[in-house]
Amino acid sequence: MQTLYVAKATSTGSGRQGHVRSDDDVLDHELSMPKELGGAGGPGTNPEQLFAAGYAACFHSALRLVTRREKVRVRDSSVRAEVGIGPDGDGFGLAVTLVVDLPDVERDAAEKLVAAAHQVCPYSNATRGNVDVELRVTEH
């Protein structure tokens, strides 16, 4: 692979209850551990939310690439990533559901486009075989 871009971010403090910042200061967030994971909650984000945001945006870009390649006109599309975390053996694991809304595309065609985007998306390629990813196309 030829690397075209490298994102850099640093975690400080105590991990899930610390701080994250990108090297260009565009991303600059306090972290709070969710109550569901034994934390106090709080106003900060968490790694799962950051991963969900990244996956949703990346998958949406891959989807738009696929629709352009297939010459399918798409308006008002969206991708919601739902990232779950829980015990998995001696550690923890993730599970992801990608909920895709393609309001102007017939369901069978939408499912094929979503499946194709899942083959293109770098996040999907990185998680394949390691994280359960469910693809869901919304009903219209």
Rank of each mutant, 00 (worst) to 15 (best):
D104F: 13
D132G: 04
V66P: 12
Q49M: 14
V133S: 04
Y123W: 10
P34T: 01
D132I: 08
N125Q: 15
S61H: 09
V74Q: 05
A117R: 15
D24R: 03
R136N: 05
N125R: 15
A116R: 09
N125V: 06
P47Y: 01
A9C: 09
H29L: 11
V83E: 07
V99M: 14
V26K: 06
L65N: 11
Y5P: 11
A126D: 00
V26G: 02
D104C: 13
V26Q: 08
D88A: 12
G13F: 04
E70F: 10
V137H: 01
R68V: 14
S22D: 01
R73K: 14
T10N: 13
V72F: 07
H29R: 05
G84R: 06
R16D: 02
T67S: 15
G44T: 02
V100E: 05
T12D: 01
S22W: 06
L31M: 10
S61A: 14
V20Q: 02
S78V: 13
R75Q: 15
P122N: 09
R80Y: 12
V83C: 10
V74Y: 04
G86L: 09
L37S: 01
L31N: 01
V100C: 11
T127G: 09
G42H: 08
K71A: 13
L31R: 02
G13D: 11
E111Q: 08
G84I: 07
P34A: 01
V26H: 04
A109M: 11
V66M: 12
V83R: 03
K71N: 13
T127L: 14
P34W: 03
S77I: 14
T10P: 00
K8T: 08
A9R: 02
D76N: 15
H118E: 10
H29A: 00
A81F: 11
S124M: 11
S78T: 15
V96F: 13
V131W: 06
G41E: 07
D25G: 02
T10D: 12
V114N: 08
E48C: 13
Y55F: 13
H19D: 01
A116L: 13
L135I: 04
G84M: 11
A117W: 15
D108P: 10
S14K: 10
V83L: 11
Q119N: 14
M1N: 09
H118N: 11
V114I: 11
D108A: 12
P47D: 04
A126V: 00
G89M: 10
S22E: 03
P87M: 01
F59C: 10
G13W: 07
L37F: 09
P47F: 05
T138W: 02
H19K: 04
G15I: 05
Q2H: 08
M33Y: 03
A126R: 00
